[in-house]
Design a protein around this nucleic acid. Structure first.
Lengths: 222, 222
DNA sequence: CCCTACACGTGACAC
DNA sequence: TGTGTCACGTGTAGG
C-alpha cells in the first residue's frame, strides 16, 4: 500500500535527482524535508514548494478517485448486483440499463400526457440514432377532426420524413399526437423548421373556421 | 508518461532492493536484464521471471483500464453529454438516469392492475427526483365517465402540477388512472393534500347522482 | 505459483 | 501561475 509517505525511499530518490540543495551537503542523503516544513516558516524554498505541491496533487487525486468510486458504489446499489462485482462488469450492466432506459423513455416519455386545452406544436430535435439516421420527436395537440391524420401524413410524405412511431390520445374532442420521426442523411436541421411551419399552417387551417384564438406555439430543442 | 520501461531508473532502484544476484557483482548496478532475456533462452533466472511477470502485470492492467474506459465511452454516447465530460460527472449523470429507470419500472409494476370495484384514491408521496423536482404518484379508481379525464386535467393544471406519465385501464365501465406527477420547487407536501381533496370531491361529484355508496379513501405515504 | 482487480503516487497536459 | 483530470506503472490482497 505504501502508506508511510515521508519514509518512502522513493522520496529520497526523487530529491536527489532534482538537484536539491539546502543547508547541508549537496549530494548527501540527509533528507530534511519534514523539518524544513515545520520549523522554518519563512522562506519556502523551491524544493519545499515542490514537495507541498506534490502533496496537494496526491490528495487531489485521492479525492478524485473517491468521487468516482462513490458514484460507482451508488450504481452498485441501484443495479441488481452485490457489492463485490467488478468495476468493469458493473459498468457493462450500467450500459445495458441505460440503453434500456433510452428505449423506454423515447417511447413513453411524454406520449401519455393528456391533450391540453391549448393548441401546441413542439419539435424536439432528437439524438443520434442507431443506424445513423436522425431521430426526433414531434408533438401536435389540437382540436380533433377526421382529416387531421391524413393531412399530417401528407406533410410528412412531402418532406420525405418517415414516422417510426405514433402515439395518439384523444379525449373530449381534443387530440394529442406524438410522433417519432426518422430523417435520413440528406436532411438537416432545416427540415425541422419546414416541418414546424407545415404543422403551424395545419393548425391555422383548422382554427380559421370558427375556433377561439387559443393557439400557442412551443418550439423546443434538446 | 514513462514510456521507456527498460531505461527507467526505477528499475535499477527496484532491482537493487530485491536482493537480486546473478553472475556479476551482487551490489553492483550492472542491470543485465535485457540481454538475459534475449540471449539466454534456457534457465530463466528468478530475476527474469519476475521481470516477465511485471511486464505481464503491466499489460493486464492496461487491458483492464481500456475495458473500463470503453464502457465509459459507450455511456458518454448514450447520455446527453459530449466526449469531454469528466469521468466523475459522467458517472453522476449515469446515476441519475438509472434512478429514473428504477422509478419507472417500480411504477409499471402496479399500474397495470385492473380497476377495482370500490372507488379508491391514493396519493403516494414520492422520492427525490433527478432535477430537484418532487415526483409522486396519484391513483384514482372509479366509475368511468367521459368528463373524468378533462376534470382531472383541470385539477392538475390549477395546482400547477405536471403529469409526467399517465396509465389508464378501463374495463367493464370502471377506470383506473395511475399518474406520475411532478411538483416543482415551490410545492410542499401541502400540495399533496390539496390534490387529495380535489380528487375526493371529484369522486363525490360523480357519486352524488345515484351511485351506491362504495367509496373508500386510501392515503398512503411512501 | 499464476492471475485478476484494486488503490496508490506520479508525470503530463489543459485551462 | 495553480488546479483538476487522465493514463501509467506499481504494490498488494484474494482466488
Amino acid at each position: 500500500m505504501m502508506q508511510a509517505d515521508e519514509s518512502c525511499e522513493l522520496y529520497r530518490f526523487l530529491a536527489q535527482n532534482k538537484g536539491f540543495r539546502q543547508r547541508g551537503g549537496s549530494g548527501s542523503c540527509s533528507f530534511p524535508a519534514a523539518q524544513s516544513l515545520s520549523t522554518e516558516t519563512a522562506l519556502p524554498s523551491p524544493h519545499d514548494r515542490a514537495l507541498a505541491a506534490l502533496k496537494n496533487h496526491k490528495e487531489a487525486e485521492k479525492r478524485r478517485r473517491e468521487r468516482i468510486n462513490s458514484h460507482l458504489d451508488k450504481l452498485r446499489t441501484l443495479l441488481p448486483c452485490n457489492s463485490k462485482t467488478d468495476k468493469a462488469s458493473l459498468l457493462a450492466k450500467v450500459v445495458e440499463r441505460v440503453k434500456e432506459l433510452k428505449h423506454q423513455t423515447a417511447d413513453i416519455a411524454e406520449l401519455e400526457t393528456f391533450p391540453s386545452e391549448s393548441d401546441e406544436i413542439s419539435v424536439l430535435s432528437g439524438e443520434e440514432s442507431d443506424d445513423g439516421r436522425l431521430l426526433f420527436k414531434a408533438s401536435l395537440c389540437c382540436e380533433d377532426r377526421s382529416d387531421l391524420i391524413p393531412e399530417l401524413n401528407d406533410i410528412l410524405n412531402s418532406l420525405q420524413l418517415k414516422t417510426v412511431r405514433a402515439d395518439i390520445v384523444t379525449v373530449g374532442g381534443r387530440i394529442r399526437n406524438v410522433l417519432l420521426i426518422a430523417a435520413n442523411h440528406h436532411h438537416s436541421l432545416e427540415s425541422l423548421h419546414f416541418l414546424q411551419n407545415a404543422l403551424k399552417s395545419l393548425l391555422e387551417r383548422s382554427n380559421c373556421s370558427d375556433r377561439s384564438k387559443r393557439r400557442r406555439l412551443v418550439i423546443a430543442h434538446k
